[in-house]
Design a protein around this nucleic acid. Structure first.
Lengths: 224, 224
DNA sequence: ACCTGAACACCGTTCAAGT
DNA sequence: ACCTGAACACCGTTCAAGT
């Protein structure tokens, strides 16, 4: 844990926070959250496990940096040419797709709301709310609600993805949950019964966008 | 890990899943998520750490059971006499307050969307959406959106609570985040700057309800 | 300044052995 | 049937020692 001074003439394969974060992302993507250990990371970088601590404060710092690397890439997409409503959907879908590609990002975003990646998400959503003409006093609440929704679904989606990575396993897994939910007393849990039937074949992405639209409709209603 | 057969004549202080879960909740509430270890639990119950595995499959099973115990208590509140809109707010606030009292519940709900506690939440929200007259085809999407929002905010709130338990520390903590957010370039992050100012003194519970109302307004708009 | 790798203080989980 | 507690296979993190 020390500030790193950058200088010219370093070896090409020298350790750096960027190289560590990059390696961490590869491990997380290929083998999941539980596979990211300092030992595995050190082995992959052909170094000692203690060396990593020179560039990274601790595991949390590493996960924050990895999450920020993924999210800031998404948030550099230019949405300036789109209408605010479409731009919000684009930003939201961008985050959704990033979590689809990197499930661990969903877990991490929900776990640390104050991390750097959140700044990008808040700015991306908030700027469009301003463009949409939401009253200044309502902007914080609206942005917060949208971001909470985004993260809540992200965390749940990531949790399922983490257990069953492939598309085919996924619907089988959801079918298993559905049949467990369907075992509850239909008299006491009529609604759970009803959605259990729809659970295995529902489209997550479509449902996600439906939620965004519900929000936008609510915001619209507030302005009228 | 075995089915437990209940019989009469057991000693009053005999181990049971209920007693284990109760002790786990007490540890989680008093000392936080990281304090719940099988060793600490065994010490508190004056038993061996291995004994717990006779009643509980693993740590995940224990956390699911603890979460379900807290949530099912909230969900037994009778909202039958309230109008659907008020009933939804009551249910949502009930979950919010439960997480306020037991921050670890927020973390756990977001981490395992298929756990038993979610069945109660879905039923509580869904039943009221039906009463509200939401079209059957839209009920799953609407309930899912509301639950996602609920869990997203819950996870974030729990994350902050977990770090700074007391009310006074909390606003100091938020002020620290706000000042970090305010250090970003105002030209590139105007919205983040704006909400940073509001962050320390905003009321989480009020903001939470504002988000629920946004949803309800969106649902209303969809029915018109 | 940066890297090494053994050592420390933990974990969850298992399992032979007890009652 | 239920409980004990040592043992196993891990963790994140530290730190004296190297270059």
């Amino acid at each position: 844990m020390a500030a790193k001074v950058r200088r010219a003439g370093r070896r090409a394969d020298a350790l750096s926070k960027e190289r560590i974060v990059e390696a961490a992302i590869e491990i997380l993507d290929r083998d999941g959250e539980s596979a990211l250990t300092f030992r595995a990371l050190a082995a992959r970088l052909s170094t000692g496990s203690g060396a990593i601590y020179w560039h990274v404060a601790d595991k949390n710092d590493l996960l924050d940096a990895a999450t920020d690397a993924v999210i800031s890439r998404v948030m550099t997409e230019d949405v300036g040419h789109e209408a605010p409503r479409e731009a919000i959907r684009t930003v939201a879908v961008g985050v959704f797709d990033a979590i689809d590609a990197h499930p661990w990002v969903g877990t991490q975003l929900a776990r640390e709301p104050w991390q750097p990646a959140m700044v990008h998400i808040f700015e991306g959503i908030g700027a469009q709310l301003q463009a949409l003409g939401v009253a200044e006093g309502a902007q914080f609440n609206s942005a917060s609600a949208l971001v909470s929704y985004l993260l809540g679904l992200a965390a749940q989606y990531a949790a399922v993805m983490q257990l069953v990575p492939r598309e085919t396993d996924r619907s089988a897994f959801l079918a298993a949950i559905a049949s467990r939910w369907a075992q509850h007393d239909p008299a006491k849990y009529p609604f759970v019964h009803q959605i259990a039937a729809q659970l295995p074949e529902h489209d997550d992405r479509e449902q996600f966008l439906a939620g965004i639209d519900l929000f936008l409709a609510g915001i619209d209603a507030g302005r009228a």
